[in-house]
C-alpha cells in the first residue's frame, strides 16, 4: 500500500475512479460497455500518438513534429492507395515507411547538429506540413477505396444493446492495443528500452555506461515517427476523410495527456501505464461532460481544473517526501 502511494499513476487512477463514479451517478449510461468501446475507439488515434510521445519524453527530448508526420504519412498513404490500389497491408506499410523516414530525418538533425529537440521539431513540423500543403494545395480526399471503408467497420466481436444498437471491439481499437503491448515490451524488457531511460536520466552517464547514444536516439525518433504514421492511418480509418489540416494543432493535447500520465519533460521518467491513464482521464473528461449534460461553455474550465487536481496530488506527495528526505540528512 505504501509503495503504491509513491507512484504518480496511483493518483491519476484515483482521480479517474472518483470522476467516473460522479458521472455514473448522474448518468448511468456512462458505465456501459457500449460507451467504453466507443470511447476507446475514438481515442485510439490520440492514444497511439501518445505512445510515441512517451518514448521521446522518457529519452529526455521532445517532439513537436509528430502531428505533421502523421498528416504527411496519412496523405501519402491515401494518394497512393487511390492511385495505385492495394490493400490494407500496403496502406500500413506506406504510412509506417513515411513515418519512420520523417522520424529519421528528425533524429539525424538532432544528433548531428546538436540543436535542442524542441527547436528542431518545431522547424520540421513547419517544413513537413508546409511542403505537404504546397504540393497538395490543401485538397481534401473523400473518395477512399471501398476496402478501406470496409476495414474500418470490422469488429473483432459484436455485442448488442437492448435497443438493438450494435457495438463491440473495433479493429481500430485493437491496433492501439497491439501498439501498446509492443511498446511496453520494448521499454520494459529490452536493453534498448533501458537505454532510453538511461539517456533521459543523464546523457553522459548513459554514454559511459556503454549505451550507444546515436543508435538509441535514431530509434526513439523513428519509433515516434512510426507511431505518428500509424496514428495518421488510424485517423483516416476513423473519419474516412483525409484533410491535411485536421491533425496539426493537436500536439499540445497529446503532450498534455502524456505529462498528465507522469512522464517528465525533463526526461528519464514515465511509463506506458501512466500514459494510458493520462489519455483515459482526458477522454472521460470530455465524454463525461456531455454525458453529465454540462453545457459546452464549461468544458475548458473543468478540463483545466481536473488537470491541476490530478497533478497537484502527486506534486504534494513528492514535496512531503522531499521534506522528509532533508530531515534525514540533517540528522
Amino acid at each position: 500500500m505504501k509503495n503504491l502511494l509513491k507512484h504518480h499513476e496511483t493518483y491519476v487512477l484515483l482521480v479517474i475512479i472518483i470522476f467516473s463514479a460522479i458521472i455514473t451517478v448522474i448518468n448511468p449510461r456512462f458505465l456501459t460497455l457500449e460507451n467504453f468501446f466507443d470511447v476507446v475507439k475514438s481515442y485510439s488515434f490520440i492514444g497511439i500518438l501518445a505512445v510515441g510521445v512517451t518514448f521521446v519524453l522518457i529519452s529526455g527530448g521532445i517532439d513537436i513534429s509528430f502531428t505533421a508526420v502523421a498528416t504527411v504519412a496519412q496523405y501519402v498513404m491515401a494518394v497512393m492507395i487511390i492511385r495505385y490500389g492495394g490493400n490494407i497491408f500496403t496502406a500500413f506499410l506506406l504510412a509506417a515507411a513515411v513515418g519512420i523516414s520523417l522520424g529519421l530525418i528528425n533524429a539525424t538533425l538532432i544528433y548531428f547538429f546538436n540543436i535542442p529537440t524542441i527547436i528542431t521539431t518545431i522547424a520540421t513540423l513547419n517544413i513537413y506540413y508546409g511542403i505537404l500543403i504546397v504540393i497538395s494545395g490543401g485538397k481534401w480526399i473523400y473518395a477512399l477505396p471501398g476496402w478501406f471503408r470496409a476495414f474500418a467497420d470490422i469488429r473483432l466481436f459484436t455485442l448488442c444493446t437492448d435497443e438493438g444498437i450494435k457495438y463491440g471491439l473495433s479493429i481500430i481499437t485493437s491496433i492501439w492495443i497491439l501498439v501498446v503491448i509492443i511498446a511496453w515490451v520494448i521499454l520494459r524488457y529490452t536493453k534498448l528500452g533501458r537505454g532510453i531511460y538511461a539517456m533521459g536520466g543523464s546523457m553522459n552517464a548513459a554514454r559511459r555506461a556503454g549505451f550507444n547514444i546515436f543508435r538509441t536516439q535514431m530509434f526513439v525518433y523513428s519509433f515516434t515517427g512510426l507511431m505518428a504514421g500509424l496514428a495518421g492511418l488510424v485517423q483516416a480509418l476513423l473519419v474516412q476523410t483525409v484533410a491535411p489540416n485536421s491533425i496539426v494543432g493537436k500536439e499540445l493535447d497529446v503532450i498534455a495527456a502524456v505529462v498528465l500520465g507522469g512522464a517528465s519533460l525533463a526526461g528519464g521518467v514515465g511509463t506506458l501505464f501512466g500514459t494510458i491513464l493520462g489519455v483515459t482521464l482526458i477522454a472521460i473528461m470530455s465524454n463525461g461532460m456531455t454525458l453529465m449534460r454540462v453545457s459546452s461553455f464549461w468544458y475548458n474550465v473543468f478540463i483545466g481544473l481536473i488537470i491541476i487536481l490530478s497533478v497537484a496530488f502527486s506534486a504534494y506527495q513528492r514535496r512531503t517526501k522531499a521534506k522528509r528526505a532533508i530531515a534525514v540528512e540533517v540528522e
Binding site: S42, T290, S296
Partner: peptide
Amino acid sequence: VTKRIPCGEDQELSKRKTMELLKAY
C-alpha cells in the same frame, strides 16, 4: 438539449460529440 457545441470545424470531434449526445439524450 444543450447550449451550442463548438465542434463544427473538426470531423473527428463532431463524430465523437454526436456519439456522446446520443447517450446523454
